[in-house]
Design a protein around this nucleic acid. Sequence first.
RNA 1: GCACCCUUAGCUCAAUUGGAUAGAGCGCCUGCCUACGGAGCAGGAGGUUACAGGUUCGAUUCCUGUAGGGUGUACCA
Length: 587
Amino acid sequence: MDISLDVREQLNAIVAEVAQKLPEFGAEFQPDVRPADPRHGDFQVNGVLPWAKRNRSNPRAMGEVLLAALHQLDPSACLWDSIEIAGPGFLNFRLKAVSLLAWIQKYGDTHHLADASASILKDKRIVVDFSSPNTAKQMHVGHIRSTVIGDSICRMLAFCGASVVRDNHIGDWGTQFGILIMIIKRKGIELNAIEGDKIEVLENLYREGNQLTQEDPSTLDIARNELVKLQSGDEENFAIWELIVKVSYDEFDKIYKRLDVRFDAVLGESFYRDKVDRVYRELREDGIAEESQGAWVVFHPEHPRFAKQPFIIQKSDGASNYATTDLATALYRTEEFKADEVINITDARQRDHFEQLELTVNKWFGKRELPIPNMTHVTFGTILGKDGKAIKTRTGGTVKLKELLDEAVERASAITRTKNPDLTDEELSKIAETIGIASVRYADLSQNRSSDYQFDWDKMLAFEGNTAPYLLYVIARINGIFRKLGKEADLESVSIPEFESAEEIELAKRLMGFPLALKQALDDLRPHFICAYLYELCGSFNSFYHNNPVLNEDKAVQAKRLLLCKTTLEFLKTGLKLVGIGSIEKM
RNA sequence: GCACCCUUAGCUCAAUUGGAUAGAGCGCCUGCCUACGGAGCAGGAGGUUACAGGUUCGAUUCCUGUAGGGUGUACCA
């Protein structure tokens, strides 16, 4: 009996094969096997009901037919002990205990799990565009979602075998530079000479400059002129721009390092500045863009909304904008990165923009006979404060990401110290950094990304419920067991008996659910399915742990339970890694 | 105005995309430390899934309408 990584899929294939030979079913029948409520079984066939509906026959009777055919299979070769028909026509499978053991022995090791998973998206080339902060400003709380969701999606895709290009499309060519250069020159500031927190200084300068342009309109003209000079290659302004960009990048990198996020390509908008002319030219040549109110725009007559709402690709003053650089970017990703798929991760407010972008790219590339990448816009909701409105500091400002992370680590440190006073200072600071950052990441990723969520320190760092500390605690405890056992924890030489206790069986089944959770998360690019799975896995493990002593006189029983501990530990580590969280030995 | 998204337990969130009796955590009750880490485990109360209809074997999920909230809608990104 061979068992697949995804048992659901395997059962689905078996049922489909049996059904194909039955006159009542045939090749078109979809068994639609799903994990079942434990009260009913381990897996259920749902597909009989819609099939019976389609054929205007009695679902229960159809179920009986399929059941009888499945009963003809050689029981010794089957993964299941029993199949029963229930309700209006569900078929419920109950797996053999030996199937569970076989699965865990085959896939319970991280390498085997990873190898088996890596075939899911093999040979797919996917560009993921995420994080995208703006230069001359600090990253704020609004950037955490794109950064963390994007990173997690990259990790999931890569785990499933895709070739992923992590691309940070930084906003480094915008109008903010006109104002910044104006105020820097006006005040005669030497950027190299700034002491201390340079990004903070730049931010303040921008604020000052912005205010000045409102008070004195003549400075606004100067700012505009500085921007034009920059964009037309003025050396002095370009040098100032380069310095500002460097300061910004250094600051971003500090945050990315703490969050354990990396990029393969950091191509800001400035990178595309010499590539927008081709966009203008080709879209005009191809008759996709037209002139309207002095600007060049793209309408989509076939679309209910975008027939009237333009996609502006060149402003009336001749300058490029977001749409232009995004079109140039799409082209670059197709031609240079050879992307099969492009995933953009931004908040839901940019829905229209990305819809228009995709429509335009499809027409443009279609005409030029370029391969059209599959474009996906992954959206997310807003982070809210306690008042249910978008999160702000007490004084009404934006919450800086750096300060948010610092506070998380501080809070984690304070709590860890009270819970475990025996830790050395060195251990404590390392653990607090992990727990603090993990808590922030996990709080975000454990939510369904499309909804807004309320930010709450206490909930985030709580040690109960679906939180990072709860999961990390389980890891610490399992590590504790292996520390205690030392050399004895060698599983190789012992023959493992079947799982017996209710908790052992439940835990084993839970472990078997890993590929299903991964698939669910992958299909919809929603990491929270992984988090939910890990949380449930911890629940099953804790029940097991509480009722089934691992350290045992009976060495075979001990080995069996150690196998469950080891597999749980590896899956937890692997799952947490997919959401970008590292694990710890103790806490 | 038009379009899109949202409304689930007192609070914060889930629900395998139309499946069986809607699940967790907090808070509120009740048990379990002579225990491999109690940052834990076992249990109880708490729901007309905003409201009104419709579609069907079956609806939190799909359709229509109503109320409330959010977002977008020509030169920001």
